[in-house]
Each structure stands twice: as C-alpha cells, then as structure tokens.
Amino acid sequence: MIQCNKYRLYSGAKNFGINVFLLSVAVTCLFPLFWMLRCSFMSLDTIFVDKSLIPPPLVFTNYITAWTKGNFGVYLLNSVIYTASVVVGIVIISSLAAYAFSRLEFPGRNFFFYMFVLALMIPLPGSFVPLVVMMNKIGLANTRIGYILCMINVGLSMSILILKTFFDKMPSDLEDAARIDGCGRLLIWWHVALPLARPAIAVIVIFNSLNVWNEFILAQLLLNDEALMPLQKGVMLFTNTNSVDYPVIMAGLVISVTPIILVYLAMQKHIIKGLTSGTVIGESC
C-alpha cells in the first residue's frame, strides 16, 4: 500500500514536472501569436502607448483594410492553387521515387538517391539567372505551371530523403503479403506503402505547404502579372507600403498565417499510432 502511494507520488511529481516544462515552452510559442492578434485589434494611436494586455476598444476595421488594400482575395486564391498543386505533385513524385529507392532494384539506385541528397547540400545562389533565361526559352515564364514545377523541384530532395528514411524503417511483411496476393508494384505503393507512411507524408505535406505558402522571391522572378502572384507577395508589399501601420500589418499577417495553421491542424492528426492491422490489404486487392 505504502509502496503504491510512493509510486503514485513519484509519477505524479514526474508528470507535474513534465507539464510545467511543456507549458513553459508552449507559452513562449503562443506569445508571438497572441501579440500579433493583440496588435491587429488596436489602432495606430494606441499601439505604441497602450500597454494593457487586452486593449479595450477592439478595432476590427484593420482586417477589412488589410483585406481590401492588400488585394488579398486574388492573392489568396493563387496561393491555394500553388500550394495544393505543389504539395500534391511533391507527394506523388517523391513518394514514388522514395519507394523505388527503398524497395525496388535497378542499376544506379544509390547514385540517383545520393544525387538528390547532394542537391540539398549545394545551394545555387546565382541560379536565378539561368533559371529565368531557361524558363523564357521554353515558354514557361509567367505561367502558373512553370512556377509550380520550380517549386516542386525545391521541395523534392528533402521530401525524398524523409520518405525514404521512413520506408526503410517500415516492416515489409505487408508488402510481401500483397505481392503474394498478386498486387503489382504500383498497387502496392498506392494501397500499402502510402497508407503505412501516413505520418511521414503528413510531415511532407506540412513541410512543403509552409514552404510554398511563404515563398515570394521565386514567384516575383518567374511571374510578371499581378494576377498570378501568391499571397506572401501581397503581405510583403503590404508590410512595406504601410511600413508603420502595425495594426493593419498584423491583421494582414494573421490572415496570411491562418490557412497554414489550418493545414497543420488537419495534417498533424495523421501523425498517430495504430497502423498495424492487416485489413488494409484485404480491402485493396
């Protein structure tokens, strides 16, 4: 009995310690978001003066100003298109490649894999010049598809590296079973490997969504028309044009951050346990 209490006390203290630790880190993470929100509801007269935690008159007009002045409607749609296309493209292309690097046999397998890894290491600082020249030659400059292909390339190496690591780690019994059942490799990839790698794919989706969502340098290089520009260009212009109007800037930033947080919320659910049942194969083949 005493033993039991002691154990409970010990684990209680341990849990308490862990909770304090987690909470304190969480506070430092939440603080900037809170600060952004707080500023976005203030007016320019009070923002530098008022030090209260929640400023009394909440100003909602900042959001309207940000939305209309920043032309966010068009930009937002573009960003959704780019992010969705690039992420879908990367997930398919990189998981195919990573699966092949991990499971399939072909000559030059390691050579090609290390080529992708090496590409992660060598930054190409001046590559924008040949890139723009090439895109104009092949007629992909100032088109959505050109920008999407470029962005797929940007995230490809890292996604392949992460996915291959996870495929290597996964037990191959399920795939073997599927093969015996007569599934082709494409079906195995789609019905067995991809569902099993769900946590890793969630990571890739988060990773690349964020990357595409926050990108505007390449967009400005490859695209000319305002109507094709992504959201971050709007945010950036907006922060520079209203260089001092912090409440409106913060409102714009809140608008731009919200969708990506939603993507994360949707994706992080997939980073979970419990993908062991063999029913997956039964359903698929």
Binding site: I93, L96, A97, A100, F112, P130, C150, N153
Partner: peptide
Amino acid sequence: RNYCFVLPAIAIFSVFYIYPF
C-alpha cells in the same frame, strides 16, 4: 518498370537543378 518510379523526379530535377548547376 522500376525506373518509371523515379523518372518524374529525375526529369524535374535535371531541368531545374542540374542545368542551373
């Protein structure tokens, strides 16, 4: 057939990385 799995990745990579490199 196995190469088909890596082909899209290598194609994009060659155009957008190897050439600029």
